[in-house]
Amino acid sequence: MALLTVENLGIDIHGIRPLDGVSFSVDKGEILGIVGESGSGKSLTALSVIGLLPLIGGRILRGSIRFDGIDLATLPEAEFRRLRGRRIAFITQNPMTSLDPVMRIGAQIDQVSMLHLGLDARAAQARSIEIMAQLRIPEAATIYHHFPHQLSGGMKQRIVIAMALAADPDLIIADEPTTALDVTIQAQIVDLLVELVRERDVALILITHDMGVVAQTCDRVVVLYAGRVAESDAVAAIFERPRHPYTRALIGCIPRDETAHGNLTGIPGAVPSVAHYPAGCRFHPRCPRRGAPCDHIVPVSAAMDGGLFACHFPENSGVAR
């Protein structure tokens, strides 16, 4: 039994249904990538798992989220709060805005361990400085007393990661942790996260729109499109033989050496908005392989060689177009 298993998750936000039948699982020591373009439901999936959907007026409509034997979909808020930060930690998208501007960063890390581990101020400070040092923050004891505006973006993201680690969680959800950072810093942060998973044996859900990052770091990957799972598989397998045309298109978007002398590849069109999801397969208006059933029959998820995909005309599967 995996540490976290999400099955057939559907949510409702003020009458719209941005997630429809999302399933995945992640275990300790494993990195699961959730990929997709903006608007595909990645962040909403994260919010569902962390139980913060009510914050944006949403609720879980159906499906289950099982974390270590606990059903998070029906867990009362008071109990969920004890879990948040303690066993499931969340790393937000933009480190520039994820820290309270008027609170010293040390105090912000301290509050997590004081809240969840019951440490006193002195023990919390010692713990925070230790974690900061582990995250290779130079002069941690000095930085501890700084305010967020005195730090660079990469350093802020390390502080956000330190906050996530402060109570020693089992599962970390990182929502595009590198999107707002310089390219040079991105690699450092990603490496840091990978190292954490291997050393501490935690589960990591890495939400990203960058297939390149997935290829470098993840063990398995879930490709989301318009609130549904297009395909999920081990990373090696998905890069070797993508079945869903959308997966192939995403992989095609990774810049390569030969791109230097040509144009970057894109996917024509955009993810449809929640209010205007097309019938049938939601990718069909942008799909190069679409056929007769695609615009009115929703493809069912099919399993093949350990992977799952939802497509009428999958690639690399012997199904003729």
Binding site: L52, R82, R84, G85, N94, L99, A166
Partner: peptide, 20 residues
């Protein structure tokens, strides 16, 4: 975002209002 981040780390509403 830092309010969302604080909530996601298990802070109570009182903590969010008074400390942040």
């Amino acid at each position: 975002t830092y309010i969302e981040a604080t909530l996601s780390l298990g802070a109570s509403h009182g903590h969010v209002v008074f400390r942040h």
